[in-house]
C-alpha cells in the first residue's frame, strides 16, 4: 500500500452472485487482494465502506457487506444504477478491480456485548448491516451476544438480497428471522392482490394488533409495520437499521414507540461521496463529513444533525 490515499489496491474478483433482479438488480461481488501486504493492511470493521475503482469508469463508495471474520475476501452488494455500478456488474471471476479504504467509522460492536441485537434492513440497506449479523453469528463471537433478531423487507420476493443465507437462517433456531415484501407479482406479471401465498397480508393500519401464527416468518407489509408487529423488547437491546431515508424515518419512529431510547438505535447514513477521505466536500451534513465522521450514527446523533439529509 502506498502513502497515497487515492491509489487503489488491485483485487481479483473471486465470486459473483446475483442477489436481486428487476430493473435495479443487485449483485454480490467477492474480491481478494492481489498483494498479501494489502490484505494484511486492510482492517475493516462492520460499518466501514470502501471505494471500488473501475479503470476508465470511475469510483464508487460501497459498504463492505462481509464481516471482518472473513479474512480472505471482501464482499460488496452492488445495485446497478450508474456508470460505475454498471461496469461492476459486468465483472467476471478473474477480473481485476481497484479497492481503497476502509473508510468511515464503525458500529461500536464491542460495546454491545451481552446485549440482544435487533437488525432491521430495508431494500439494499441490508448490505452495510449484513456485516454485523454475520459477525455476531460467527461461532467465535456468538456467545458474546444475546438473542439476535433479523427483520428484512424488500419490494418483492425477487428484490430480497442475500436470500440464500437468510432462508437458511430462517430454518434454524437461531437467529429469529422475519421477512416482508411490499407485494408479490401474480402469474400475469402484474401486481396481484391475491397471490400472497406464504406471505399473508398484514393490516397496515393496525399492524401491532396482528396475531402471528406460530412459525410464520414471512409477511406482506412494509418494514416499519413488521417492527410494529414483531415488537422487539427494548430491554438491554440494540437496534440497527438501514434503508431508504423514508424507511429509516418510520422504523426509528416505531422503535421509539416500543420504548427504545435514541442511544439504543443505530443507523448508517450514506451520502454521495467521491474521495472518501474528507476532502472533496460533498457528503457533509452540516459540519459533519459522513465519510470520515460517519457513516454510523446513533439516533441521538442523527437528531443533532442539521436537517439536510
Amino acid at each position: 500500500m502506498s502513502d497515497n490515499p487515492y491509489e487503489p489496491m488491485p483485487a481479483r474478483v473471486i465470486g459473483v452472485s446475483m442477489e436481486a433482479g428487476g430493473i435495479r438488480p443487485v449483485k454480490k461481488i467477492q474480491v481478494a487482494f492481489v498483494n498479501e501486504e494489502d490484505k494484511n493492511n486492510f482492517k475493516n470493521v462492520p460499518g466501514n465502506c470502501a471505494i471500488l475503482s473501475m479503470i476508465g469508469q470511475g469510483e464508487s463508495m460501497i459498504s463492505i457487506t462481509s464481516p471482518p471474520t472473513e479474512k480472505d475476501f471482501l464482499e460488496f452488494a452492488i445495485m446497478k444504477v450508474g456508470v460505475v455500478t454498471t461496469a461492476l456488474h459486468e465483472l467476471e471471476v478473474g477480473d481485476i478491480v481497484g479497492v481503497r479504504g476502509p473508510y468511515g467509522n464503525a458500529f461500536p460492536i464491542d460495546d454491545w456485548k451481552g446485549k440482544d441485537i435487533v437488525i432491521i434492513g430495508a431494500g439494499i440497506g441490508m448490505a452495510p448491516i449484513r456485516s454485523i449479523y454475520n459477525y455476531i453469528l460467527h461461532p467465535d463471537n456468538r456467545k458474546d451476544f444475546g438473542k439476535v433478531t433479523l427483520m428484512y423487507g424488500a419490494r418483492t420476493p425477487n428484490d430480497l438480497s442475500f436470500k440464500k443465507e437468510l432462508f437458511e437462517y430462517e430454518d434454524q433456531a437461531d437467529p429469529d428471522v422475519f421477512l416482508c415484501i411490499d407485494w408479490k407479482f401474480g402469474p400475469n406479471g402484474m401486481m396481484d392482490e391475491d397471490a400472497q401465498e406464504g406471505w399473508p397480508r398484514i393490516n397496515m393500519k393496525d399492524a401491532g394488533a396482528t396475531v402471528i401464527p406460530p412459525g410464520q416468518t414471512r409477511f406482506t407489509c412494509f418494514v416499519p409495520q413488521l417492527v410494529e408487529m414483531i415488537k422487539p423488547s427494548p430491554e438491554n437491546t440494540i437496534a440497527i437499521t438501514c434503508g431508504p431515508p423514508i424507511a429509516i424515518k418510520f422504523i426509528t419512529q416505531n422503535l421509539s414507540k416500543l420504548g427504545f431510547d435514541d442511544e439504543q438505535i443505530f443507523t448508517t447514513m450514506e451520502n454521495r461521496m467521491k474521495c472518501g477521505i474528507g476532502k472533496c466536500g460533498r457528503c457533509n451534513i452540516g459540519d459533519v463529513f459522513v465519510c470520515v465522521d460517519g457513516p454510523v450514527f446513533n439516533y441521538k446523533q442523527v437528531k443533532e444533525l442539521l436537517p439536510e439529509y
Binding site: 479503470i55 476508465g56 469508469q57 469510483e59 467521491k274 474521495c275 476532502k279 472533496c280 466536500g281 460533498r282
Partner: peptide
C-alpha cells in the same frame, strides 16, 4: 472553495484519473 470531483478518462485497459473542480 475546494470541492472537487474525480473522473476517469480512457478505456477499461488504461487511462487517467483526474481531479476537477466541482461546485456545491
Amino acid at each position: 472553495c475546494f470541492c472537487f470531483d474525480i473522473q476517469d478518462i480512457g478505456s477499461r485497459k488504461e487511462g487517467q484519473r483526474v481531479r476537477v473542480w466541482d461546485s456545491c
